[in-house]
């Protein structure tokens, strides 16, 4: 089986400061990988580097493209990379307003990716948008409302619909449940899990919330100071952490 994403020795520096370094892993179709670590550990830098938002100083990020199999997205041309990022890739931001157009209706937000890949039939675009609002549990009569009038959880679900409408194969998520109420988080987690399974999505989720990765991620990487200090099966890393930092992280979580 070909990995969907093959990350090899990725390094990103900010001047002399390490953003992240020496990161390698394979992600297979349908797999969900969690990346945990505290603020400044390099997990967001890594995610943005993998997603093509930052250019790594070293290493390769190979993606199994539909046309040509594994291609290094770091060295591919920018138009190709941007095309990937609005077709086969998706990026869910922590703050929905970074991932949504706040002055465009919900339907327009969902439809944008369709129009970006050439959809030119208003009726069909609207029907697809309406279907997706339903799938992320937003009432279809909100289709012409702007996201500014939505609650935080709704905005986040709208962002997810906007990202998944083109049927991507890989989703990058940066703290997707951050800043949401616990009950809203649960709903979102449930939604994400179902979508991941129904669509056979692979996902890379950055979070500092260990409960989130336990429920969503098959595998886990723990980052500290730009390095991956431990990785493995999610429940194994959480229940039998080997590295001192991971042990500290796990033991620091308040049990409810």
């Amino acid at each position: 089986m070909t990995p969907l994403l093959q990350v090899e020795d990725i390094a990103k520096y900010y001047g002399t400061r390490i953003g992240c370094t020496g990161v390698s892993f394979d992600l297979y179709p349908g797999e969900v990988m969690g990346i945990v670590g505290e603020s400044g550990s390099g997990k967001s830098t890594l995610l943005n580097t993998l997603a093509g938002h930052l250019t790594p100083d070293r290493g390769a990020v190979r993606f199994d493209t539909r046309a040509d199999g594994l291609r290094d997205t770091v060295t591919m041309s920018e138009p190709e990379r941007r095309m990937l990022s609005r077709t086969d890739w998706a990026f869910v931001h922590q703050h929905a307003r970074d991932g949504l157009r706040m002055n465009v209706s919900a339907g327009g937000n969902v439809g944008e990716r369709l129009m970006a890949v050439g959809a030119r039939h208003y009726g069909k675009i609207r029907a697809t948008a309406s279907d997706w609002l339903g799938r992320v549990e937003i009432n279809e009569d909100r289709i012409d409302d702007r996201p500014a009038s939505f609650s935080g959880g709704m905005q986040q679900r709208l962002q997810i619909a906007r990202n998944l409408v083109t049927g991507p194969r890989l989703v990058f998520m940066d703290e997707p449940t951050g800043g949401l109420d616990v009950s809203v988080q649960a709903r979102l987690l449930d939604l994400l899990r179902n979508l991941v399974r129904e669509m056979g999505l692979s996902a890379i989720i950055v979070t500092h919330d260990l409960a989130v990765v336990r429920l969503l991620a098959d595998r886990l990487m723990v980052m500290k100071d730009g390095h991956v200090v431990e990785s493995g099966l999610t429940d194994q890393v959480l229940d039998d952490p080997q590295h001192g930092y991971t042990q500290l992280l796990v033991s620091s979580v308040l049990q409810v």
Binding site: S183, A186, R187, L189, D190, R193, R214, L215
Partner: peptide, 12 residues
């Protein structure tokens, strides 16, 4: 594996 504890997404 049937563990002693049930771990599920709260809303399911």
């Amino acid at each position: 594996y049937v563990s002693q504890f049930l771990r599920v997404v709260p809303r399911v």
